[in-house]
Design a protein around this nucleic acid. Structure first.
Length: 474
RNA sequence: GGUCCCAUCGUCUAGUCUGGCCUAGGACGGAGCCCUCUCAAGGCUCAGACACGGGUUCAAAUCCCGUUGGGACCA
C-alpha cells in the first residue's frame, strides 16, 4: 500500500472540543503508527458560523495536546474554485443537473411525502429536464445511483450496506454558488489523496452519499472508519451541559495533555488491561482492530485519576514549571517564582502524590509559598489548645538549638520533645504542629513541611501557634 | 416517520471474529481492612455485568433470528 494519508477536518464554529480531539487522536495515531501523513483541514465553507478566532482555538488546542500535523491547515474557503471545477465536471458528464425547484416547492412536497408515509427525498423532478442555462436561482444536484447497493467496508463497524434507491439526488452546489458539505468533503479528500477517512459515526450515513461522488469524479474511494461518539452521563451526546467540553478548559483546570490523550484514547480503544500508555507505546500499539464500536460515556472521575497518575509519575522539574500559572488565581505567582528551582522541585515532590490536578497542587502549596500562614479556624480550635503550649515551647527551643535543619535532625528533635512528655504519641504533637505551620489538618509529612518552610518561618509560625493556643479557652 | 449504527459490572473495558481454558478478568468510582504524624499514595478484601426471548450446538457472553433499549443521520 502506498503512503497512508489521514486528516482531521474540524469546522471552526467554536472551541476545539473533546470529541474532536479524540477523532484527531485516532487519525494521528494511525498516521504515526504507519509512518503516514496527518493533515489538518479547516472546514469553513459555512461562513456565517466560521470565525478566525475559532481557527486559532483549534490550532492552539491541537498544539497543546501535541497532535502535530504534517500538512495544512488548509482552508476550504481558499479552495472554492476547486469545488466549482469538480461540479462542472460532473455537469458535463451528466452526473449532475440543474434543479430549479424552489425552497417552498421542496418543502411542500416534503410535507406531502411525509403525510403519505413515503420516503422523504427529492422526487427527481428536474432530473430529466436537461436544463442548460438555469439563470439565477438554480442548484446543482448530483445524479445519485438509484439501483443496487452501496457497501462500505468500515474499518471499525465492518460491512455496512445501504440501498441506493433511498439515496437522494443531493445538492452539490447551492444556488449561491457554494458547495455543500457532502460535496466539498469528497473533493477535498480526493484531491488531498486521503487514503483513510477516520471520522465520527455521525457521518456514517453520509458515506453512501459520498462514495458515488468519488466514483463519478473518477477518484479512488478511500477507506472509511467511523468512530463512535462520546456521550455524557445521561447517554446523550456530550455537550456543555455535561460540563466542560473544550479541551483548553481542561488545561485551565490543571490537566496534563498526556493525561487527556491517555484518557481519551481509552475511550473506545484498548490494549488488554493496560490503562496507562506513553505516546510511544500508543503509537506502537494502536490498531483499529481494538476500537470499540459502541459509544462511550465520558467519565470525569476516571480522567481525574489518569491525570493524578501522570502527576505522580511526572518529572518534578517540569511540573514545577507547569504549576506556576496556577498560583495566579491566588495572587502568588510572583512569590512562587522567587523560590529557587531546587526548592520548587522539593515542593512538587512533596505534593505530587496528593494532587489530582495542577490547580490542586498549587492550592496545596499555598502554605509554603505564602509568607504568612492562614489558620483554618476549626483546625486551630481543635489542635491549638492550652494543653499543647508547653510542648510547643519545648519544641521551639529545640528547633532553635538544632545544629542543622535536615529532616533527620528534625525527626530527632521531635523524638526528644516527645520523650519529655510521657504517654504522648507522635500524632498528638504532629497535628498541632501541622496546624501551626500550615494552618490545615492535612499536609505532606511534617518533616517535609518544616524543611520546605525553613527554620525562620517554622519558628515564627510555631510562636504564632503558641500565642493562639495560649489565648484559647482552657 | 424512514435509514443506519450499537448493546459485558454505575462508568471505561478484556473476552466475541477463530464457541469449551469464563463459577466472566482488569480499571475508575463505592464499601471495608492494613500501612501511618495528618492527608494522600500504596497493599489487600468485598459488593457489582454477559438487555430480553427464541434457536443452532455435546457446549453460547461468543454464531443466527426476533424483541426491547440507546444513539446517529435524513428531514
Amino acid at each position: 500500500m502506498s503512503e497512508i494519508r489521514v486528516r482531521f477536518a474540524p469546522s471552526p464554529t467554536g472551541y476545539l472540543h473533546i470529541g474532536g480531539v479524540r477523532t484527531a487522536l485516532f487519525n494521528w495515531l494511525f498516521a504515526r503508527r504507519h509512518g503516514g501523513k496527518f493533515i489538518l483541514r479547516i472546514e469553513d465553507t459555512d461562513q456565517s458560523r466560521s470565525t478566525d478566532e475559532a481557527i486559532r482555538a483549534i490550532l492552539e488546542g491541537m498544539e497543546w495536546v501535541g497532535l502535530n500535523w504534517d500538512e495544512g491547515p488548509l482552508r476550504q474557503t481558499e479552495r472554492m474554485e476547486l469545488y466549482r471545477q469538480h461540479a462542472m465536471q460532473l455537469l458535463e458528464q451528466e452526473r449532475a443537473y440543474w434543479c430549479v425547484c424552489t425552497g417552498e416547492e421542496l418543502e411542500a412536497r416534503r410535507k406531502e411525502a411525509l403525510a403519505k408515509g413515503l420516503p422523504v427525498k427529492y422526487d427527481g423532478r428536474c432530473r430529466s429536464k436537461g436544463i442548460k442555462d438555469p439563470g439565477q436561482e438554480a442548484a446543482l444536484r448530483f445524479r445519485a445511483p438509484q439501483e443496487g447497493q452501496t457497501v462500505v467496508e468500515d474499518l471499525i463497524k465492518g460491512e455496512v450496506t445501504f440501498e441506493n434507491n433511498l439515496l437522494d439526488d443531493l445538492i452539490i452546489l447551492r444556488s449561491n454558488g457554494y458547495p455543500t458539505y457532502n460535496f466539498s468533503v469528497v473533493v477535498d479528500d480526493a484531491q488531498m489523496g486521503i487514503t483513510h477517512v477516520i471520522r465520527g459515526d455521525d457521518h456514517l450515513t453520509n458515506t453512501p452519499r459520498q462514495v458515488p461522488i468519488f466514483q463519478a469524479l473518477g477518484y479512488a474511494v478511500p477507506q472509511f472508519g467511523h468512530l463512535s461518539m462520546i456521550m455524557g452521563a445521561d447517554k446523550s451526546r456530550l455537550s456543555k451541559r455535561h460540563g466542560a467540553t473544550s479541551i483548553m478548559a481542561y488545561k485551565d483546570m490543571g490537566y496534563l495533555p498526556d493525561a487527556m490523550i491517555n484518557y481519551l484514547v481509552r475511550l473506545g480503544w484498548s490494549h488488554g488491561d493496560q490503562e496507562i500508555f506513553s505516546r510511544k507505546e500508543l503509537i506502537e500499539k494502536f490498531s483499529f482492530e481494538h476500537v470499540q464500536k459502541s459509544a462511550a460515556v465520558f467519565n470525569p472521575e476516571k480522567l481525574l485519576w489518569v491525570n493524578a497518575q501522570y502527576i505522580k509519575q511526572g518529572d518534578p522539574k517540569q511540573l514545577a514549571h507547569l504549576v506556576a500559572p496556577f498560583f495566579a488565581a491566588h495572587g502568588l505567582m510572583e512569590a512562587y517564582e522567587k523560590y529557587s528551582e531546587g526548592w520548587k522541585e522539593k515542593l512538587v515532590v512533596a505534593l505530587q502524590e496528593r494532587a489530582q490536578t495542577m490547580a490542586e497542587m498549587a492550592e496545596g502549596a499555598l502554605p509554603y509559598v505564602a509568607e504568612q500562614v492562614i489558620l483554618e479556624e476549626k483546625a486551630a480550635q481543635k489542635f491549638l489548645t492550652q494543653a499543647i503550649v508547653p510542648v510547643l515551647e519545648q519544641l521551639i527551643a529545640k528547633v532553635e538549638g538544632a545544629s542543622d535543619f535536615s529532616k533527620v535532625a528534625l525527626e530527632s528533635v521531635f523524638k526528644e520533645t516527645l520523650e519529655g512528655q510521657p504517654g504522648m504519641k507522635m500524632g498528638q504533637l504532629a497535628q498541632p504542629v501541622r496546624v501551626a505551620l500550615t494552618g490545615r489538618t492535612a499536609s505532606p509529612g511534617i518533616f517535609d513541611v518544616m524543611e520546605l518552610l525553613g527554620r525562620e518561618r517554622v519558628i515564627a509560625r510555631l510562636r504564632q501557634g503558641v500565642a493562639r493556643a495560649s489565648a484559647a479557652h482552657p
